[in-house]
Design a protein around this nucleic acid. Structure first.
Lengths: 169, 169
DNA sequence: TATTGTTATACTCTATAACTATA
DNA sequence: TATAGTTATAGAGTATAACAATA
């Protein structure tokens, strides 16, 4: 839900049989499995978030604001993994909906400090619940222990993420 | 590597310290972890694939052709998770590079059957090796057993993937 | 002169809907 | 009339580079 890429035309409320089976090519390749998991989550979550008035992109921004307290829009953009210019319209819209507030830093009037409003905190909580439901539906084949295991493995893997060595380096 | 979304401007050969740390907001949310894993994999793999003359999208198509033997372009498109119209240019370019061959089905001349050429098989093998290296670099914090575990969990989860229940349904 | 945020532009990707050729 | 593939068009998303304000 980071890249929150273009949803692969899936109808989330449609009958489950409409979901095409996982091709062998994906089953055999962990990178493809992880990639598809990301797209599917985004596709399934999108309509839920829409009911809350936010996009998957907004969800990421709200979550980062809540948990990482970025000191500027640039820090926020970097944490969200996107270009600073992208953040402008995201913040604009969230501010227009009253979910965040933008204030100039008195110490350095170039910086604008963004913070969650009480409404923003509430919407984030609701979005977290929806994300949780979508995730639970995707992981329904796994036991609770296995879901925890998966979360732990992913957490440890991404904490240490680094570009793969290229040829001789 | 399915959605293979727009690479989040990462310089894969740059020094590892350049990779921003994982925000707490991601660490706490499995859906965000999975989403970011997908984007990161695509971003890191892209330049490697480029050296082989293919895109991440091409990689998916080649893998599906090898493992799932789709009987038509429509089946190929569905397995790749994209619109049929998208497949046309992908196949065009792969065919132009000699990696696949497109032949009309004599039984039903509307269908075009796509198959890997020997060159295509070789490029797929090389791409698989690169994907493996990128994946291994991302999972460097996990033991071999844990990496196998992760693959198994993801496989079982996605095999059963279904849209999340919506409110009352 | 460097940096933060903003604006403007161009480009890529994708979906959608006509169109053709076969059936 | 329906289906496989193709083409064309329009829209969304993004990156890039200029720009303004502040340091």
């Amino acid at each position: 839900m980071d890249g929150m890429s273009p949803a692969n035309q899936v109808e989330p409320t449609a009958d489950p049989e409409a979901v095409p089976p996982l091709p062998d090519a994906f089953a055999a390749r962990l990178p493809l499995l992880l990639s598809r998991a990301g797209s599917d989550l985004a596709a399934f979550a999108e309509p839920r978030f829409a009911e809350l008035g936010i996009t998957p992109k907004d969800y990421v921004a709200l979550a980062v604001l809540a948990d990482d307290e970025p000191g500027s829009q640039l820090e926020l953009a970097e944490a969200c993994g996107r270009a600073p210019a992208m953040m402008v319209s995201v913040i604009d819209q969230l501010a227009h909906k009253g979910l965040v507030a933008r204030e100039r830093d008195p110490k350095d009037r170039r910086r604008s400090v963004v913070r969650l409003t009480p409404d923003g905190t509430q919407v984030l909580a609701a979005a977290d619940r929806e994300a949780e439901r979508v995730s639970a539906a995707m992981l329904v084949a796994l036991s609770p222990d296995e879901q925890t295991q998966l979360h732990d493995l992913m957490h440890r893997a991404l904490r240490a993420v680094a570009p793969a060595p290229h040829d001789g380096d």
